[in-house]
Write a protein that binds this DNA or RNA. Structure first.
Lengths: 158, 158
DNA sequence: ATTATTCTTGACAGGAACAGTAGAGATTTT
DNA sequence: AAAATCTCTACTGTTCCTGTCAAGAATAAT
């Protein structure tokens, strides 16, 4: 019952982007360095987040990724959902999926009492994740005095 | 982020025992037949549940398993915890484990904001699972009119 | 135009965990 | 003594996770 690293890395990376946001797009290499995530793996994760509409990208020099919406409008739930594919504790219950794929249904139809437990647990978890936005995390980071790294692309003149 | 089948089967099996409870211990073969679970696999799961103190067993003819406590005192959380080993959404956070093994700690120490999210999510989920007892499930089964199978060991005289 | 930079796409692979199978043995009732 | 039942340990095939890698496409700077 573990979240995949895609979810964990995804939330960390998105927070990192929001926290260090500047006028230019953020680049994989900077995020991966600060968050200690393999750059090649982070590329994959960002593809998922982009497909989910949470990121937009720009290629070429000075390119990179940026949040497609303000930090207060992006929740942890959206990121986990995009990275995990779905937010359902079991496979045997009908639920909304990222890819619209038909989910397997319970072999006991509605005779299985436990399906209600798993479905409700998933819902409760999703509700909690949805209550936390990237901006909330940024505020928390400020309070904790988390260091903000200056964009090296603005530091040529030092 | 899926619960293992051990958890799902475990809860189903424990409910089955509570729902069909008689004066004699319940046997693997009956539970596995009613719940459509591989008997050999269910043996393994029951070993975990027994180690966690949720079941007691008796060998030999007319032997089997029985709940070690009344159904209203056994919650879904206990069963999931016993089957899953722990109830924590990530590995990077300190948490209580079944085996007391030292959990890996976060590489960012307390600098990682996301660990609070995962820990709180795990807590919320555990709290929900803890609010459901086997008796609650039995009551729900009654309301739904779920059929109770008579113990074949009492049916010789028919 | 050319070049360097950055994202894009798809393939591939080692390892761990999951889900189940199997066999030999221990215990208890009949 | 025999049959039923749980107990313990080991084994195995499959899937998923967690990356790595390579070649290509788009863009900005020169």
């Amino acid at each position: 019952m573990k979240l995949s690293t895609k979810s964990r890395y995804g939330v960390r990376a998105m927070f990192d982007m929001a926290y260090h946001a500047g006028s230019l797009p953020a680049q994989i290499k900077d995020i991966s360095r600060r968050q200690n995530i393999s750059p090649r793996y982070l590329e994959q994760i960002f593809q998922d987040l982009k497909k989910a509409g949470l990121l937009k990208s720009r290629r070429g020099p000075q390119g990179g990724y940026s949040l497609s919406r303000p930090a207060e409008e992006i929740t942890v739930k959206e990121i986990v959902l995009a990275a995990e594919g779905e937010l359902m504790l079991v496979n045997c219950v009908k639920g909304l999926r990222k890819d619209g794929e038909a989910p397997p249904s319970c072999e006991f139809d509605n005779q299985c009492l436990t399906q209600y437990i798993w479905a409700e647990g998933s819902r409760i978890l999703g509700q909690y994740f949805d209550s936390i936005s990237l901006k909330d995390l940024c505020d928390q980071g400020q309070e904790l005095g988390l260091e903000k790294e200056l964009d090296h692309r603005f530091m040529y003149f030092i």
